[in-house]
Design a protein around this nucleic acid. Sequence first.
DNA 1: GTTGCAACCGGAGGAATTTCCGCTTAATCT
DNA 2: AGATTAAGCGGAAATTCCTCCGGTTGCAAC
Lengths: 208, 208
Amino acid sequence: MQRGYALPVSHQLPIVGQPQPERADAARNRQKIIQVAARMIELKGADQLSLDEVAREACVGVGTVYRRFGDRTGLVFALIDERERVFQEAFMNGPPPLGPGAGAAERVAAFLTALVDRVVDQQDLMLLLELGSPKVRFRGPYRLYHTHLTRLLAEVRPAVDPRFLADALLAPLNAHLISYQRDERGLTVEAIKAGARTLAQALTQPRA
Amino acid sequence: MQRGYALPVSHQLPIVGQPQPERADAARNRQKIIQVAARMIELKGADQLSLDEVAREACVGVGTVYRRFGDRTGLVFALIDERERVFQEAFMNGPPPLGPGAGAAERVAAFLTALVDRVVDQQDLMLLLELGSPKVRFRGPYRLYHTHLTRLLAEVRPAVDPRFLADALLAPLNAHLISYQRDERGLTVEAIKAGARTLAQALTQPRA
DNA sequence: GTTGCAACCGGAGGAATTTCCGCTTAATCT
DNA sequence: AGATTAAGCGGAAATTCCTCCGGTTGCAAC
């Protein structure tokens, strides 16, 4: 697995420059920790993820986990990383209507629909991600989503601040809300997607 | 202060029926705890609120705090309570356009605008509120907001599930996001309100 | 007043997160 | 190979949230 979000210490977007070398033992431990964490989540659910336990299970000190991943959110970034790359690739460079080639309005709708799937797909991890402080939360994938939507909205709706609209489109698709809608309100994933499309349509249709 | 959200043990909506008696010592402690908590927040910020410390400062055991308020979120409910009542009264029974008397679309817009003010007004406490688990978060004030909006939206936009739309209107006005937009994106409160109005308009305008 | 008991009290303690720091070791340079 | 050193390591300890339970007390009924 390549190094992704899980850079040492702080939460950063992927760096493509020269990846400064990582000592062999450090790399070994990172692997071990990620594997153990993934297995434990599969076993007992993401909400039961205890870093203490991960450390114990991986036969490393707690300090090692924290140095490698900063905090729990950092570890979750690393666990999400693989599928997240695929998703990002899809809306950045993939085929339309998600990727470039389709109209902005259509791409927004496609993006929101795909995002619902993305959230549902790794719901537990997404929930964990949203537990972090906002400083952290808005750095991860969210930042890229926001940039993407802002660009598209600026094309089609220049009258209103596209940065706000981008947030307004992303906010209803947060993992906690979706999870609540499904579990407590009884909404199906399809219903949520339909709602997302309605949202997209309402905000990309310029008016007088 | 009346008893509001801060009912013993669990998080509930206000009960207007007969308020079952509370022992004198219990009432005394509730007061003391609320006062100490309020003072500590004023002093060191809401994010530094430690229940252990509140207990120590109020000269009661930690257990007492937890029996009275259930958990941190419960205590925050109690602290919010007063202004929250005023706000709820305003959109339930106050003068239009916020209260009844105006058209549904207009009321939605007025509500969202007022909600922005509400969130900004007690931002720190709102942030704390959102930190609780979703089970808790969606019980407090949120539940009432959602019911209110759902009713209004059902009048004006029956084609789409109004419950989803209500969530979609509330989500962008969460305290974490607003705080981020103001601090990091440099958006003014006015800009956020303008965005909220745009949202309201886009979702209350029925289309083909 | 006395009494009975349900409600209440306080704080010890478990679980989890996160910080800190003295020791160890991998990688590099000579 | 040997020396140097920055990076890494592990776990003790501080902090916080929350639960639990043996002892205490307000209060209502007699």
